[in-house]
Amino acid sequence: MAQSNRGASDKQIVEIANADGRVLITEDRDFGELAVRQRLGIAGVMLLELDRLTNSAEADRVADVVSRHADKLLGSLVVIEPARVRLRPLE
């Protein structure tokens, strides 16, 4: 289930996602920093770098990445760009 918590701190968002073992989907690069450098133990992060795409094209791109890489999303930082996908283990 998608969830939006406007006004919540980044750490609160991480706690909410982790409580349910969810992968965090965001356009906020701070979460990549929290996951990789500060090692906050995020279950997984999908960072969307899709600014030039329409909302519909962005949704299609994310759906495609999820279907192709579903088994790698937990425990990874996944950076989705229009022409490529980068996966980095969080541990």
Rank of each mutant, 00 (worst) to 15 (best):
M1T: 14
A2Q: 07
A2R: 12
Q3M: 11
R6C: 09
R6W: 13
G7F: 09
A8W: 14
A8K: 11
S9A: 13
K11S: 09
Q12E: 15
E15I: 08
E15T: 10
I16W: 06
A17Y: 02
A17C: 09
N18L: 04
N18W: 06
N18H: 07
A19C: 08
G21T: 10
R22T: 04
V23E: 02
V23D: 02
L24M: 10
L24T: 01
I25C: 06
I25L: 13
T26D: 07
T26W: 06
D28H: 07
R29F: 11
R29P: 00
R29Q: 12
D30V: 14
D30W: 02
F31P: 00
F31E: 00
G32F: 00
E33Y: 09
L34N: 00
L34C: 02
V36L: 14
V36E: 03
Q38H: 11
Q38I: 03
R39L: 04
R39V: 01
R39Y: 01
L40K: 10
G41V: 06
I42E: 02
A43W: 04
G44L: 02
G44T: 03
G44F: 01
M46N: 00
M46Y: 05
L47C: 05
L47T: 01
L47D: 00
E49N: 13
L50I: 12
D51A: 15
L53F: 10
N55P: 08
N55Q: 11
S56W: 08
A57C: 08
A57E: 13
E58D: 07
A59G: 07
V62Y: 06
V62K: 03
V65A: 15
V66L: 11
R68M: 05
R68Y: 05
A70K: 12
K72R: 15
L73Q: 04
L74P: 02
L74E: 08
L74I: 09
G75I: 05
S76R: 06
L77F: 08
V79P: 00
I80W: 01
E81H: 14
P82M: 12
P82I: 11
P82K: 09
V85P: 03
V85I: 09
R86A: 05
R88M: 01
R88L: 03
P89G: 09
P89S: 13
L90N: 00
L90G: 00
E91A: 13
E91N: 10
